[in-house]
Nucleic acid binder design. Structure first.
Lengths: 131, 131
DNA sequence: CGGCTTCAACTACAAATGTAGTACGTACTA
DNA sequence: TAGTACGTACTACATTTGTAGTTGAAGCCG
């Protein structure tokens, strides 16, 4: 039974931090800081602080090499996705995935064709015995 | 073009507050407090405080009647849904609704049949010129 | 060798959040 | 009318988050 661990809730900025680590695992603080400085103009020290806090929360893990710290994410992108989607599902759609899908159709550019493709994909999955 | 106002981000507890107001608009503080006390064991004063803060943020509006305050939500459930879905979409799926839909198919009980139904619905929408 | 650069570590601080107590007025009830 | 209950307004306080400065060691530049 796939228990979703402990529901990782990341704020927008924290998410960006972690995203950097997903893209380039084992980045030094400086690397992450550079990325965040580019996208949000955040100071190096700020990034360092946030990484430490994320490590305290168990979201990332550091490895020391000389004076520098290198970070890796402890959560996979998919785990976070799952956690956040099911959260949204629960909180805004009464846990009904169909309601969310309907919302997507109604409010975004999700076309009938997209649905057909997905349907095909899903059938595929099912016919080969799921996951 | 439909700008989504100003992105309502509600924390879980705030969401519950507002949800009560969606279900029973024009509730007195006591009503909301009763609901929250039941679901989370939160004190009356706590609820009152949060309602005041939400009003300051423009999320709810109060009407005074004698000594009591009656609240209404200023945001519609749909607006919040839109805002939260597009947020999630942006942050976790690179803004691609198909990716989110695929995720739903893969990780929840969203079946091919569901997709077909939605497809039909979507076609309906389209053929009558949208909304 | 003596600055200049680079980091981590520590400290700081404001805003938001979750939570609730206290104070004070109004109102119903005997 | 006195007492009790209810409800708002104010205040309080710990925690989390976003943000960054300061300090001090370590290493590089000339």
């Amino acid at each position: 039974m796939p228990n979703s661990a402990k529901a990782v809730a990341l704020s927008p900025v924290q998410m960006e931090l972690v995203r950097v680590l997903w893209e380039r695992p084992d980045s030094a603080t400086a690397d992450v800081a550079a990325a965040l400085a580019a996208s949000r103009g955040i100071a190096h020290t700020t990034v360092a602080t946030m990484l430490i806090r994320l490590e305290k929360r168990g979201v990332v893990k550091s490895r020391r090499e000389g004076r520098a710290l290198f970070y890796r994410a402890c959560v996979t992108e998919d785990a976070v996705r799952r956690s956040m989607v099911s959260d949204l599902l629960e909180r805004m759609f009464g846990g009904d995935p169909r309601a969310l899908a309907a919302h997507l159709v109604e409010h975004t550019q999700l076309s009938p064709e997209d649905l057909s493709e997905l349907s095909a994909l899903a059938n595929d999955e099912v016919s080969r015995g799921g996951r």
